[in-house]
């Protein structure tokens, strides 16, 4: 009731919604660990990751609608033959999703050595994927298909480049997780690895979506 004092005022546990009532000191690093920043619940990092992915979805959905609209106008649309190396690249990225999962599990189990092996393997697979994408570009260029050749090729280069840049960001994140001194952080390395894993799986799924769009929509 506005304007009145009632007797049944109760304190409701709000906030820290994802922290499960854990005080804002953070539950996984025993205090703020000297990061110099106020501690926040671990769940906030996962919220932020999901929101970031929502922003990325909107970006790629805008490009996808542009693709469909531009194709619909289509007097000058020339379907390009997708370089077969893309199928190999896709396989590499799928495998990397598995390896990053194994790496995260190993880290949670406390097996640092095994974590480093699988994490390194994921980074290597990510780099292999990017190299494969560059090879696909070179093969297309060798056939005389360039960015400005026709709308389909424009979208091919644009979508693969946009995805590649996001994945390159993911590789930087993986390197950061591997080499940052986590003692002075608000979260543990395991949490950081889990967050990087979510992003990595998302980039994998996004690639499959884009590949389907480029293959079926051409």
């Amino acid at each position: 009731m506005p304007g009145t004092l009632t007797d049944d005022i109760e304190i409701i546990e709000a906030g820290h919604g994802r922290g499960g009532g854990v005080p804002a000191g953070g539950d996984d690093d025993g205090g703020d660990g000297g990061s110099g920043l106020p501690a926040i619940p671990r769940g906030a990092y996962f919220t932020a990751m999901q929101l970031g992915l929502a922003g990325i979805v909107m970006f790629f959905m805008a490009l996808t609608s542009s693709f469909l609209v531009r194709k619909g106008l289509g007097t000058d649309w020339v379907a390009i033959a997708l370089p077969p190396v893309l199928w190999f690249n896709s396989l590499v990225l799928l495998v990397s999703s598995a390896t990053i999962q194994v790496a995260s599990h190993r880290l949670e189990e406390g097996d640092a050595q095994s974590f480093r092996y699988w994490w390194g393997l994921t980074i290597a697979l990510g780099l292999l994927f990017l190299s494969g994408q560059v090879i696909a570009w070179r093969q297309l260029a060798a056939q005389g298909v360039f960015l400005s050749s026709n709308p389909d090729s424009s979208f091919f280069y644009l979508l693969t480049a946009a995805h590649g840049l996001h994945l390159a960001g993911g590789i930087l994140a993986l390197l950061y997780v591997a080499f940052r001194p986590w003692r002075r952080s608000r979260i543990t390395q395991a949490t950081a690895a889990a967050l990087a894993g979510i992003y990595w799986h998302f980039m994998d799924g996004l690639w499959l979506f884009l590949l389907a769009l480029l293959y079926l929509g051409r």
Partner: peptide
């Protein structure tokens, strides 16, 4: 935007 939403959802004080 990402920062604003996360802060509002996860950093509210008790009550």
């Amino acid at each position: 935007a990402l920062n604003f939403i996360t802060t509002t959802l996860d950093l509210r004080a008790k009550g």
